[in-house]
Computed example of a mutant assay.
Amino acid sequence: MNIQTVEFRRCFAWLGAGWYAFKSNLGAWLALSIVFLLAVMLLGMLPFIGIPLIMLFVPLLLTGLLVTAHKSLTGSLAQVEDILLGFNDERFRQPLLLLGGAMVVGTLFLLVMFYPLSWELLKASYLPGSDTQANAVLLEVAETSPLGLLLQLGMAGVILMAFFYATPLLVFEGLEPLDAIMTSLQACLKNAVPLGLFAIMVVGLAILAAFAFGLGYLVLIPVLTGASYASFRDVFDPVENANPPQEHRGQARVIGE
């Protein structure tokens, strides 16, 4: 796998590509964003098991969004049913579920690592009437063990990097879940500066999108998906044939072979 090292300025081009992808298939993107948000919200409402279920199914949902980004940036017409591609295509389903299972393990590891702060946050999310002290716990950890907190944040960053490119690597390049995870981590470490700046911009945009009752996420989801796909193309420089994944995978390896 050819991993490129890109300049830090490329992160601005990624966001520009994401905006272009959103404008080129506006109707389909809005419908896809609504379906994605509803799925995440409904799963998230399930007490305590909601977060693991979201992590399990996120790769399957992301597949549809990434395919839409691919079509939008290559001049093809996106369709609303693309959101279900990860569920409907047998070539994708099992490997994506395995990847989702790995995400569940990573999430549980983070919850255990950040205990008791994670427990306070879970109580605030699922038991709104309970007495939560998340801020107090965070301040206490920061004061008593700042080095430990930095190590925990570093480990969380490593886990996020391991999964950032895992789904597109599996879908577009036909890698096995474990290979996709390791390759994603390697690529993110090699491009820590542009991706770090990209992450900072994403956080800022997410805060802005939270205004107006969160309707900004209907725009943010398509833009960030398109930007992430553009960064994937930049970093990995996949095969030049830019067909939809079903055809593109014939250039690489069909999942399940």
Rank of each mutant, 00 (worst) to 15 (best):
G64K: 04
L195K: 01
L189P: 04
G50F: 02
N135P: 02
N135D: 13
S130Q: 08
P95D: 09
E176G: 10
E240K: 14
I83Q: 03
M201G: 13
L108V: 15
C11Y: 12
M55Q: 09
K123H: 00
L169K: 01
F232T: 01
G174E: 03
M1W: 00
R253K: 13
G204E: 08
F57R: 03
Y20W: 13
W29N: 06
L38C: 14
L26T: 08
A13P: 00
G106W: 03
Y20S: 12
E90V: 09
L220G: 02
L215G: 06
R9F: 10
S118I: 06
Q246D: 12
T107N: 12
A242Q: 14
A187T: 01
L150K: 14
G50C: 09
I207L: 10
W14D: 01
L26D: 09
F12V: 14
G226E: 04
V105C: 15
L153M: 13
V67D: 07
L98F: 14
G174N: 08
E173L: 08
R9P: 02
D237R: 02
G256H: 11
L62E: 08
L30F: 14
L139M: 10
A206Y: 08
T225W: 04
G27S: 13
G18N: 10
F22L: 15
L215I: 11
A13S: 12
R249D: 15
A230V: 04
T167E: 03
L218M: 11
I200T: 10
G154E: 13
L205R: 05
A136E: 15
P59Q: 04
G101R: 06
F92H: 13
M55K: 07
G64I: 05
L62D: 04
L77V: 13
G216V: 08
L60T: 05
L117F: 05
Q94N: 12
G64R: 03
R91P: 05
L66Q: 03
L38E: 06
R9G: 10
N191C: 00
T183A: 13
L38Y: 09
S76D: 11
L26I: 09
K190S: 11
L53V: 03
S231A: 07
A78F: 09
P238Y: 03
L195D: 02
R91C: 10
G157D: 07
L175C: 03
F87H: 08
L15S: 05
P238R: 03
V40W: 03
T63S: 12
I221T: 08
L117E: 00
